[in-house]
């Protein structure tokens, strides 16, 4: 596979469609700069600042961009907020659309057929496999990402975190809690 990728790179470089320096920059960005830390900062801001939370609800693309995280595929973002009544879960049944700018690249299970097919049919069962037991009456809403629209779950703020700094709050926000296969960590 390495030789085929090199061959593609060679052909495209010869045609002037890509250059190796630009490729290196993209790799570096996704390996070291974007990741779930970005999303955690968005969530922590929303927990701390009601005005920001409101903006995030109305226009997630702009609110997230205000923190410096913008998508490169021209996709729109929608933030879905967990409440006492509803838990949100994100999937891409089509392939692996994912909010790269705030979560980095998706974990292996997100891209795998079992999750892609079962998240819609049996979300409660899938969540149980992730060790997440929801209260019986709680509704689960499943959001199917597309190339144009990606979702970020805003988990519920853990209790006992009143007065915490955004930085400290962000440490409680796991990647899975922003996909919906988990919840935020408990305050210790």
């Amino acid at each position: 596979m390495a030789a085929r990728v090199r061959a593609l790179e060679t052909i495209l470089t010869r045609k002037g469609l890509i250059d190796s320096a630009a490729i290196d920059v993209i790799v570096d960005t996704y390996e070291t700069k974007v990741g779930p830390r970005n999303g955690a900062r968005v969530v922590a801001r929303a927990w701390s600042d009601a005005e920001f939370a409101d903006w995030l609800k109305r226009d997630a693309t702009a609110a997230i961009a205000s923190l410096g995280y913008t998508g490169r595929q021209g996709e729109h973002m929608q933030a879905v907020f967990n409440t006492d009544e509803t838990h949100n879960l994100v999937v891409c049944t089509l392939c692996s659309c994912y909010p790269w700018s705030v979560l980095g690249l998706p974990p292996v299970w997100y891209k795998a057929p079992p999750y892609r097919s079962r998240a819609v049919i049996d979300p409660r069962g899938v969540l149980a496999e992730f060790g997440l037991k929801l209260a019986d009456g709680k509704k689960i809403r499943v959001w199917d990402s597309t190339a144009e629209l990606r979702y970020l779950v805003v988990p519920q703020r853990p209790s006992g975190t009143e007065g915490w700094s955004e930085e400290r709050l962000a440490d409680l926000v796991t990647r899975d809690s922003m996909i919906g296969t988990g919840v935020a960590r408990e305050a210790l």
């Binding site: 596979m1 390495a2 990728v5 090199r6 593609l8 790179e9 495209l12 469609l17 890509i18 630009a22 490729i23 290196d24 993209i26 790799v27 996704y30 390996e31 490169r72 595929q73 690249l105």
Partner: peptide, 15 residues
Amino acid sequence: WQAEAFAMVVALHER
């Protein structure tokens, strides 16, 4: 090679 393949798609789309 996975990183290169990934980056090529991003670069070609941006172009």
